[in-house]
Design a protein around this nucleic acid. Structure first.
Lengths: 341, 341
DNA sequence: CAGTTATACGAAAACGGTTTCGTGTTAATA
DNA sequence: TATTAACACGAAACCGTTTTCGTATAACTG
């Protein structure tokens, strides 16, 4: 087992001081060509690499960014994460992920763990429970300590920081408009309990589109399902007892499940009933029929978030007046078999 | 902006030495009750938390584990990751993820970045390219430095370390046997190019099952598709030109796509043709019909990997004779609509 | 030749902790 | 009363870097 070599080792072997070695390896002008070459050759031979931890301690920069998301087994978060990771890696940053599991407590614990020097900044999407509790003290603490924070998708207005969102309301509006243009009259909305920020925005887009096109809102066509629903009774019953010719769903899974109900009921998609879902994930692409879906461009969102965060981290030095931005990623409608024919 | 408080600050404020503060906060017997209470109260008031980086440097333990996977937008890896993260978090470890993107070079770079002190050990699944190249020097370097390593799923025999796999061959055998018992005669295999370790094992299970049941292998019923296949011509043609009554697919996506071909061709599932896929992911659960699938229990696999790694990390102190294990996770067949009726 | 200036390097502090060891004070023991 | 032990704390080394500053030597200047 060959242990990692340190500056001290090199210094002793070559009979120079640690500072000389350090400078030589950084190609400092202060050191003579001869000495530099000797030291660099030796370092290369023994494959010297500086110890990240020591460098971090000295520089007060870890080159790590902390990502806290509610769930990792979730296509959208996963694509966002990919965007973050790619951008960050290209800039020499590593990513530490913590999963809050939609739990407030875990979110708090994770943040605290990471905030004690492990990372230079946070990127996160709030857990469902946090949004429900409306308690953001952990975020406040972090920002007050001067740790940069970027929120994405599941955000809050209570905290002053950089944010990245998609234009949920307009996207929903656009989707509903597409259905209306397609001559659909009775458009249902399948959504979650309303504490989820994004669901609400999407619902608002739905309402607005109906209103603008003179279609009265029929509350009986709105179904709220628990976020993690497993049993199907409720949604099945909904389809058995309502008449509709189109469905907008705030996520993929609800849409897929409901397409199934419709099919079992003997309806043809899209002839009798059209479906549009949110989150253009793997299910939309591979469902049968393929689901028309609002693409959230998670990867782009992640890249943007990482860009904003790293920007803040690296400009922090100058410590100018803090100014925060909210970037909006434009959602796009991917049309597939569940609407057109 | 209130900066983090350090031992030194506390020491100065309370007019004691740094060592006294450090000991007091650890509730050391060496310090008097009075002093301890004073210090602890002060620390609590100012919300003192030790700096992780400093502790890491001193202890030569980061409490971070590095995870390197080929792809994060992939249900299986994602579930494994969840298992790792949960187990690790419960033990006070954080997880740094790097994505190799199936690229050898990225895998190497990522490992090197992390190996310089950032992590206490690695958990990884090899990239496709690494398996293709058969070059494992980066792994060797790491293990030679005494950094614990656990490989999962995409492993190699060339490296001596802990490993976690599923019984791919037996699982495939079991799946095929199920089809045979179900009176299927012409069973196709849809697989990837063979450099992927796991595909090969699954194919071997397929061959073995056919052989044991006296069914001759018909090479024309074996379709090899590129790992990331986008166009559908090849698979569609396969279904147009072959007669078969069952399909085993080494992954979910291939199975789902092929079910679609079969349906379009007018075949009824499972009456005319049965399907079994590998990787019981989200597609299997939500496809129509729902896909019978070999569950790989990713989360369990991740937890086991994390358990093995952390075990090694924390026992490293004793530095006994190195002994490596390979744990096998038992795959199970989840029967759904694509086989039974 | 005295004084200045490069040149090339080393000593030491610093980052924020942990830990070993030494020591002054007080209390217990002989 | 002298000796020892217990107690409570501080000094300092250490982890592996970076960086500032000081300085010996040699070379140059007037």
């Amino acid at each position: 087992m060959k242990k990692k070599i340190t500056l001290k080792n090199i210094a002793r072997e070559l009979d120079v001081s640690i500072s000389t070695v350090s400078k030589a390896l950084k190609n400092s002008e202060e050191i003579s060509r001869d000495t530099k070459e000797r030291i660099q050759a030796f370092a290369k031979l023994y494959n010297y690499k500086p110890n990240n931890i020591a460098v971090s301690l000295k520089n007060k920069r870890t080159k790590n960014i902390g990502v806290i998301i509610p769930d990792i087994v979730h296509h959208f978060f996963t694509t966002v994460f990919r965007g973050i990771e790619k951008y960050a890696n290209d800039r020499g940053y590593n990513v530490i992920v913590c999963v809050s599991d939609e739990s407030f407590d875990k979110e708090v614990i994770n943040m605290e763990m990471l905030a004690n020097g492990s990372i230079d900044g946070f990127i996160m999407a709030l857990s469902a429970e946090t949004q429900l509790k409306n308690d953001f003290n952990h975020l406040k603490e972090v920002t007050e300590q001067g740790i940069p924070l970027v929120l994405f998708d599941r955000i809050t207005d209570e905290i002053n920081c950089d944010k990245v969102v998609i234009n949920d309301k307009q996207a929903a509006y656009m989707a509903v408009k597409k259905l209306i243009d397609n001559n659909r009259k009775r458009i249902a909305l399948i959504t979650t309990e309303s504490y989820l920020n994004v669901s609400e925005k999407r619902a608002n887009g739905y309402y607005a589109a109906l209103k603008d096109h003179g279609i009265p809102v029929d509350e009986s066509l709105i179904l709220k399902l628990p976020y993690q629903f497993e049993e199907e009774e409720e949604s099945a019953k909904f389809f058995d007892t309502r008449e509709m010719d189109a469905v907008l769903s705030v996520n993929e899974i609800f849409a897929i499940r409901c397409m199934r109900h419709a099919t079992l009921k003997g309806l043809r998609i899209p002839e009798d009933i059209a479906f549009i879902g949110f989150t253009d994930g793997i299910l939309s692409k591979f469902s049968n029929p393929r689901l028309t879906s609002v693409a959230q461009h998670g990867e782009q969102m992640g890249a943007k978030a990482a860009e904003m965060l790293i920007g803040k981290i690296e400009s922090d030095m100058e410590e100018g007046e803090e100014t925060y931005r909210t970037e909006v990623i434009e959602a796009t409608l991917i049309e597939r078999e569940s609407t057109v024919n």
